[in-house]
Write a protein that binds this DNA or RNA. Sequence first.
DNA 1: GTGTTTGCAAAGCATTTGCACAAGT
DNA 2: ACTTGTGCAAATGCTTTGCAAACAC
Lengths: 139, 139
Amino acid sequence: MIIQALRSKGYKATPQRITVCKTALSSREHPNVQNIYREVKKTHPTVSLATIYKTLNILKESGLVQELNFSQGQTRFDPYLEPHINMVCLQCGKIQDLDDPAVKELVKKVYVKANFAPTTQRIDVYGVCGQCSKAAKFK
Amino acid sequence: MIIQALRSKGYKATPQRITVCKTALSSREHPNVQNIYREVKKTHPTVSLATIYKTLNILKESGLVQELNFSQGQTRFDPYLEPHINMVCLQCGKIQDLDDPAVKELVKKVYVKANFAPTTQRIDVYGVCGQCSKAAKFK
DNA sequence: GTGTTTGCAAAGCATTTGCACAAGT
DNA sequence: ACTTGTGCAAATGCTTTGCAAACAC
């Protein structure tokens, strides 16, 4: 699957690349580069950060993951490309996805109202997640 | 106005700060650091980038501007804090705002559906703006 | 007058790049 | 075999920091 995808785009299917792709595409945790690096190191201890970056750029250009940039050079990756909401908890840092048909509607509206032809989107809501606000009550 | 805001937060109202704040808060162009730097230099030729960065951090912490981080260390600032859509043109790089009541509804829904308490949000739609797609037709 | 801010230069980080060697097809 | 990819180290570029002189209050 991943091997075919890489080859069809003219890239060689090296073990490192396959592992980076597998890691990035299977995670629902919105991992950052270090997370992926550490995970890949488990099976490829000599892998370099450069390879991680290069492979993630391939995934980006191929439109298989979305890059989410935050303050202070924090970048995370999301393989879930359907229009959805990222709920970013400012307390614990977790990012959870929320599906809602209204997102797709909103994107459609942009074209109708503003003559803007959308290709992708990023919907972030920042706040405090359920677990963190529950935890806060017991302090 | 700006002077009062700075002082009320315990900051001294220096000419450089006032100019940076005025520039960042009055622009609807989603300027980046360099844009603001160049603008401020017109009246304060000796201003340093460090001062720009420090003042923008004050505005961020005070919740008077939102920072929009993109790929490749591209950061832009938005003083418009009402829930709205950023239409980001991938052709010309312009970012235009679009107001729509559905955004506020969407944020509300996050709380109801997922028990997530929102504080701010960022709604980006990436694509091609009206001007650019019109221009493309004449090529 | 006292504590803060400025501007400079240096430091810090995330990310990219150049290159010799290794590996995929 | 030929071409592309890997891993290392160096380079890049944005942002932050330390510090002495200047400034706000």
